[in-house]
Design a protein around this nucleic acid. Structure first.
Lengths: 352, 352
DNA sequence: AGTTCTTGCACCATCGATTGTGCAAACAAG
DNA sequence: CTTGTTTGCACAATCGATGGTGCAAGAACT
């Protein structure tokens, strides 16, 4: 389809047309012409030829020669989630503003996939790699290291290069406290009425759980082990955990700390099978923000991670000369129920 | 950071190590060695050397020579939205299964951005481009055409190459009818109690509106013009429209057809400023599916577009020899309130 | 032994852009 | 008018992989 097109113009074509050498054309079009003392008039001629012939440089050729591609990679666990897709959206804006081209790829939380995907990106000579939410950041690190590729971790930390992550401990604390306070007015929550569901044995989950337990101890005076249910990230596993609890107790816990919006989807799947009224007394805290979730028929307190802040910080840190493998914490934000926040989309104009 | 790495091995390195010529190494490693009658033992040697030295081909070099990159592009309006991010997720899976590398980029619904972004992708010699939800598909077409790049439209149709889109007319009909039927039990809806908000003058909106009006006429016997409020896609514009209506009438219409989940966010923003109780009698139909929206405190009927179906069809059509610029309609699905559907994520394993 | 195949590989141009180097022409200085 | 400088550009190597072509050594055949 659409293969009628004449081949794209190259510097050689413009060289012939302008009567200059290819190197002159190249210099003019990539901005180094002053350094090469090309006459303004020559440059002007070449520029206008480039314009009329719709010349654009072949990036593969340029990249091959200069061993830089202009591509900056973002490795995500998944696309299909508001948190990660807003990560992609924000990342893209930053990369574009630097005049480079974003390449966003997901690796399904699979350590093997992650490494292979990094390999693939490297084979395209990407210039930098942002590793977001990787299950095995240090594994990806090795691949990058071997290729001499600048990289940085986001969302989940690694030990070899800097990491920019949410302050999950503080976030966990804030969210837990907000759930508990939500009850105080009437009948206060008991320690075994507040459960945490979702997440697995990763840094983020551990920190959130640590915050959760700390606050439970401080405010409720106890923190039973069985209230922690790390069911992984799959919605269906979370659903099964809720079903199991419901089966056993005839109801859900009154207070629920859900580790991510993906796990929250598991809760929805559970709820789909039960009447609304069963959840009258429920308060949910979710470690993620989704505008629709915020308006559900029970109070949903959410944490919005500062995606813009993380990305900005990550770009700062990755430019540093000798970045230390330390962890940079970014504060998340507590979002009260029924709150519709603006997001990266609001920066876009709506062309009607 | 991480720049200690020795440079990546090339076929020249392996050539020296193996005592064979670079072309032999190349042939062995890209699979054409049988055709070149390379001895099995030579191939074996080279393969093992490649293994131990972690050789991976430089794709820029390969792409430059063969004028194919192995990259397949997807041009989206935005990332930060369940519909488009599941598009990205699904697209990625398809591309990966073909052994190629997906490159997903967004262009903010801006015709100019769209063309420039396509240009950029072309400069990386991508092999195919999927144009999804473009404001000006034919503009992008011209850019692709000039570069001899295979491309196809998704979600919003163009006139120059094939398009794979939702059957928005049918979807609009289904959704409208579902909203109306939702009321019949008690007090039936009047024609001026069912409004459509959101969307702009694009093919999808027009078709949905056409379906909306047709069903209103059929079932309610009338279809006043003022019930159509195409406020564009920005959440805040939708919010303002709701505010304006509320200001004027002291309430919202009982039945609401919201053109997309993004517009729905505008409704949420409006609702954030008003007590829950104001919306007791409300039924919302939303042309998009979001699991959280499906469980809101008022009935939300949703349309789920068949993303998997569209992507699959698009891959079929783009491979055709001489694809005609026709429109392929994919049927969407009506989703009743309080329904938590599975999505592309459920295909992933959860490594605990 | 001489001729013809076949096997197994090496050589080299090529893709398009970048960049270090060289060198004529124009100009200035003495 | 000779010698040095500056201006303005051309030349050619290079990045890494691909693929057409050529050719020596051994096998097969007469």
């Amino acid at each position: 389809m659409a293969s009628s097109g004449k081949k794209k113009a190259t510097i050689y074509d413009l060289s012939v047309l302008s009567g200059s050498s290819p190197s002159t054309v190249s210099a003019v079009l990539n901005g180094t012409w002053q350094k090469r003392r090309i006459k303004e008039s020559t440059a002007e001629l070449i520029r206008s030829l480039a314009e009329t012939h719709q010349y654009t440089a072949n990036r593969q050729a340029r990249g091959l020669r200069s061993s830089r591609s202009g591509l900056i990679g973002l490795l995500l666990p998944i696309h299909d989630n508001r948190y990660f897709s807003s990560m992609a959206q924000t990342f893209e804006a930053h990369v574009r503003s630097k005049g480079q081209c974003p390449i966003v790829v997901s690796a399904s939380r699979d350590p093997d996939e992650e490494r292979k995907t990094a390999e693939t990106l490297i084979s395209y000579s990407i210039d930098e790699l942002f590793i977001c939410g990787a299950t095995d950041p240090d594994g990806v690190h090795e691949v990058c290291e071997a290729a001499g590729l600048k990289h940085i971790n986001i969302d989940l930390p690694g030990s070899k290069v800097p990491s920019v992550i949410s302050d999950n401990y503080e976030g966990g604390r804030m969210l837990t406290e907000a759930i508990i306070r939500r009850f105080e007015a009437d009948r206060p929550l008991l320690p075994d009425e507040l459960y945490l569901f979702g997440g697995r044995n990763d840094h983020a989950s551990r920190e959130r759980i640590r915050g959760f337990r700390a606050v439970k101890n401080e405010l409720l005076g106890a923190d039973p082990d069985e209230c922690i249910q790390p069911t992984g990230y799959a919605p269906n596993n979370a659903r099964l955990a809720f079903e199991a609890f419901y089966e056993k107790h005839g109801r859900l816990p009154r207070g629920l700390f859900v580790n991510s919006s993906i796990n929250f989807e598991g809760l929805l799947r559970f709820m789909a099978g039960h009447p609304h009224e069963n959840f009258a007394d429920l308060v949910v805290g979710c470690y993620d923000y989704d505008p629709f979730a915020s308006f559900l028929p029970f109070p949903v307190i959410m944490i919005r991670q500062d995606v813009e802040g993380m990305i900005t910080k990550a770009f700062e840190v990755i430019e540093e000369a000798r970045p230390q493998p330390r962890i940079h914490l970014i504060q998340p934000e507590l979002v009260q129920p029924r709150t519709a926040l603006t997001g990266p989309l609001d920066a876009l104009k709506d062309i009607e």
